[in-house]
């Protein structure tokens, strides 16, 4: 059952090396921990093919220089034109992890989830002070719905205590021992 839960949570484990797809991708020349695409080839295929011959070495040098040049241009762009974006873009090439998403099962607007959390906090605080002051009757019914079950139970208990207060006082006063 634990397996089920893990599976249905949506964040399953990565595909492991025993998988035929994994093996096939390796046969296609992929190395673990790297992404796909042509840029990875330039950076990581160095050890094997490229440096083997003169032309390859030259290409590699050009590639490194080109990389530095691109960095330099980017730096200039940022410094002189105040451009901000780009860092993510630059390193985003060749993603390693699949895109993650979640299922949205309500009609809440953008950003509304966070606000709700914030709003519920002061509510809780209010609630504790109220129950401390034994003044539950004033709590709007709408709010009580949003309170947790546990809270409501505690409130119920408090109310019962209050109702029995007189009884208990009476008891204390007129306990047979005192008579």
């Amino acid at each position: 059952m634990a397996q089920d839960l893990e599976g249905s949570s949506g964040s399953a484990a990565a595909i492991d090396s025993s998988n035929i797809g994994f093996k096939l991708l390796k046969k296609h020349g992929w190395k673990e921990g790297t992404g796909l695409g042509i840029s990875e080839q330039d950076l990581l295929g160095v050890g094997e093919g490229l440096l083997a011959n003169q032309r390859g070495r030259l290409l590699w040098k050009i590639a490194v220089l080109a990389g530095l040049w691109a960095l330099w241009l980017e730096r200039n762009r940022r410094i002189f034109e105040g451009a901000e974006e780009g860092l993510e873009e630059m390193w985003d090439r060749g993603r390693l992890e699949p895109v993650e998403t979640y299922w949205k099962n309500n009609k809440r607007g953008l950003g509304a989830d966070k606000v709700k959390k914030k709003a519920s906090k002061p509510l809780d605080a209010k609630n504790t002070t109220i129950s401390g002051g034994k003044n539950e009757q004033e709590l709007p019914s709408k709010n009580s719905k949003t309170l947790s079950k546990k809270m409501r139970k505690m409130q119920e208990f408090e109310r019962q205590l209050q109702e029995k207060e007189f009884e208990r006082a009476f008891f204390r006063e007129f306990w047979p021992d005192n008579v």
């Binding site: 695409g37 042509i38 295929g45 985003d92």
Partner: peptide, 14 residues
């Protein structure tokens, strides 16, 4: 050579 195909945005290896 799918691994080194010139993707504009290479997908995740998985």
């Amino acid at each position: 050579d799918l691994v080194h195909f010139d993707f504009m945005d290479p997908p995740a290896p998985e």
